[in-house]
Design a binder for these strands. Structure first.
Lengths: 168, 168
DNA sequence: AGCAGGTATTACACCGGTAAACGATTTGAC
DNA sequence: GTCAAATCGTTTACCGGTGTAATACCTGCT
C-alpha cells in the first residue's frame, strides 16, 4: 500500500502540529484532489470536440431529460448561475448545437432544445467519455468501485441535505 | 436509503439510452458533485477571514512544511500555475501575511515565509476549518468514514500515477 | 563572451459569479 | 376594469481569479 499526496500532507501537519485532528482531510482533501485531477484530464475526449466540461454538462442535461428546458431549469440542473448558462447557450447556439424558442404564453421564458447535430454530438461523445472514465477507474476492482460509489452516495445525500437546502 | 442527485441522473440516462454503461458516473459524478458542494460551503470559516480557499492552501503549504518555499515549489505544492501563485503572493504580502526574501546565491529565486500574523492566522483558522469539516462529515459513522477515506486513497494513488505523471 | 536552461513575473484572454437592468406577468387597490 | 407595484425569468455589465504564453532576468557551461 503506497500512500497518496494527502497522506503525506497529513503527516506534515502532524509533525508540525501534533495535536491536530486531521481526520476530515483524509476525506475532503482527497475528494478535492481527485476532482482536480479528474477535471484536468477527464475532459480529453471533450476538448477534442471543442467542448468545455460545463458545456457538455449543459448539452447532457437537455439530452437526458428528453424535453425542452428553460435557462432557469438548466441553471438549477447544472448547478451554475443563470448568467453562466446564458453565455454557454449563446456559444452553443452559435455552433448550432442548441436552439432557443420563445414561449407563446409567457414571453419571459425561453425553451432550449438540441439541434440534430447537438444531439448527435452528445450521443457520440458520451460513450467515449464513459469509456475514458472507465479506464481511469480500472485500477479498482469491482467490489471496491461499488463500495466507493455507495459511500460517496451516502456522503452526497448528507451534503445535499445540509448544504443543498441552504442553496438558493 | 434515499438516493442522491447522481442516482436520478443515471436513471434519466438509462431511460433515454438503455444500453449505456453509466457505471463511471456513479463514482466520478459523485466526486465532482461532492467537491462542488464542499467548495461552496466549506470555505465559510475562511471567507470570514477574508481568505480564498486557494490563498489558505498556499499559507497552509508554507506552514506545514515549516520552512521557506520558493514560488515554484508553492506552485507544485498547491497544484496551480506559477502565475496564480505570483498574484496570490502579492495579495498576501500586501496584507502582511507572507514575506518575500531574495536568494543570495541565485538571484532568480525568491523565498517565501509566513509573517507572525500569517502564522497566527493559519493556526487560528485551521482548527476552525477542520471542526467545520468534521461537522459536515458527521452524518457518516466512523467505520464508514474510514472505509471512504481508504477507497479514496486507492483511487487517488491510481489517478496520481496515471495523470500526475503526465503533469509537467 | 555567448548560449542553453531555469525561475519568476507580466500581458492577455477566458470563464464564472454577483448584481443591476430589462421586459413580461401577476397581484392588489381603487 | 385599470393602473401601479411587486414579482419573475432572462440577459447584460462588471469584476475577480486562473491559465497560457510571452517576457525579463539569472546562472552555469562551453
Amino acid at each position: 500500500m503506497t500512500d497518496d499526496i494527502v497522506a503525506s500532507v497529513v503527516r506534515q501537519w502532524q509533525t508540525v502540529n501534533p495535536g491536530l485532528d486531521t481526520g476530515p482531510m483524509e476525506i475532503i482533501g482527497r475528494i478535492n484532489r481527485c476532482a482536480a485531477l479528474l477535471q484536468q484530464a477527464e475532459d480529453a475526449p471533450l476538448r477534442s470536440a471543442g467542448l468545455t466540461r460545463a458545456e457538455f454538462d449543459l448539452l447532457g442535461a437537455v439530452r437526458r431529460t428528453d424535453r425542452e428546458l428553460t435557462p432557469g431549469e438548466l441553471a438549477r440542473e447544472t448547478f451554475s448561475s443563470g448568467a453562466a448558462v446564458t453565455k454557454r447557450l449563446r456559444a452553443l447556439q452559435d455552433r448550432a448545437l442548441v436552439e432557443r424558442r420563445g414561449d407563446d404564453r409567457d414571453r419571459r421564458v425561453a425553451h432550449v432544445r438540441l439541434t440534430d447535430e447537438g444531439r448527435a454530438l452528445v450521443d457520440r461523445l458520451l460513450p467515449e467519455q464513459l469509456a475514458y472514465e472507465r479506464s481511469v477507474l480500472a485500477g479498482l476492482d469491482q467490489p471496491g468501485r461499488d463500495e466507493l460509489a455507495s459511500r460517496l452516495s451516502e456522503l452526497l445525500v448528507q451534503l445535499e441535505g445540509r448544504l443543498g437546502g441552504a442553496r438558493r
